[in-house]
Nucleic acid binder design. Structure first.
Length: 238
DNA sequence: CAGCCCATACCGGTAGCGCT
DNA sequence: AGCGCTACCGGTATGGGCTG
């Protein structure tokens, strides 16, 4: 009988410890810092890495960490009966061209899905919704704006009954654009659909993980949650 | 407004480290 | 010991800010 082999650690070839790599990825994705900003900040604390290393690490480990966060969220929401999704699109500039970033956000402000397309039509809406439904269990209701592509896509999926069109009752979902816009600005620009797609989805998941709504809870509670979020962060991809 | 300057992300190539 | 892979370097394209 073959001896059960321990899966190789994704950190095995890297010169730096998993702790440092996790710190770097968190700094770069979570805050509006450039690759070089991260390099310089770490240098001040005695860690010597190149900005290119920062780029490589977020590309390699960002999706892994994001996947861990998403899986956690998915199992926490399994069986939840009053899950409501809000669908929305925003413009993002990509090499001078405008593309669309579709997003599904739930009633708690968690960003469930990010999807980049060149067109804003039924086909794009359909692909976006199928992807969201693949990654999460189906919600109780879906709210959209008046864009007709949503209705057409819902007809195709056969779940029109769940759709509610209207202005959203709160601005929570619109607010979730802000962190991405701030981050987008620090990156100067996106060049390829693939890296925009990757960044949008990694950013959304990491934002969810560290979004502790500090204004809604007392300081003690906030500090406990923050410690918990950091401790969990240090366990990802291990 | 035009032209210049600077900071940035991204890419190909490769030395040599570190894993098996 | 052999080789897969990381980390880094030099180069390029490009957008925003600045100056006049």
């Amino acid at each position: 009988m073959p001896r059960p082999r321990k899966p190789a650690s994704p950190f095995r070839y890297f010169n730096s410890s998993p702790e440092v790599i996790r710190l770097v990825v968190m700094m770069y994705v979570r805050f509006p810092l450039s690759l070089r900003n991260v390099e310089d900040l770490l240098f001040e604390r005695g860690i010597d890495i190149s900005h290119e290393t920062v780029r490589m690490w977020w590309n390699r480990f960002g999706p892994m960490f994001a996947g861990d966060i998403r899986r956690q969220r998915r199992s926490a929401m399994r069986g939840f009966r009053h899950w409501r999704w809000h669908l929305d699109e925003m413009y993002v500039k990509l090499n001078g061209e405008m593309v669309y970033l579709w997003r599904a956000v739930d009633q708690e402000g968690e960003i469930l899905e990010s999807f980049v397309t060149r067109a804003r039509d039924k086909d794009a809406a359909l692909r976006f919704m199928k992807r969201a439904l693949k990654h999460h269990s189906a919600p109780y209701a879906i709210t959209t704006d008046g864009l007709r592509s949503y209705r057409a896509a819902m007809n195709e999926l056969g779940n029109t009954a769940k759709q509610e069109v209207g202005r959203w009752v709160n601005n929570r979902v619109e607010n979730s654009h802000l962190p991405f816009r701030r981050r987008e600005r620090a990156m100067l620009r996106f060049r390829r659909m693939k890296s925009l797609q990757k960044f949008a989805s990694v950013h959304a998941n990491i934002h969810n993980h560290f979004n502790l709504e500090r204004h809604l809870v007392d300081r003690q509670t906030f500090k406990e949650r923050r410690s918990a979020a950091l401790a969990e962060w240090q366990s990802f991809a291990s």
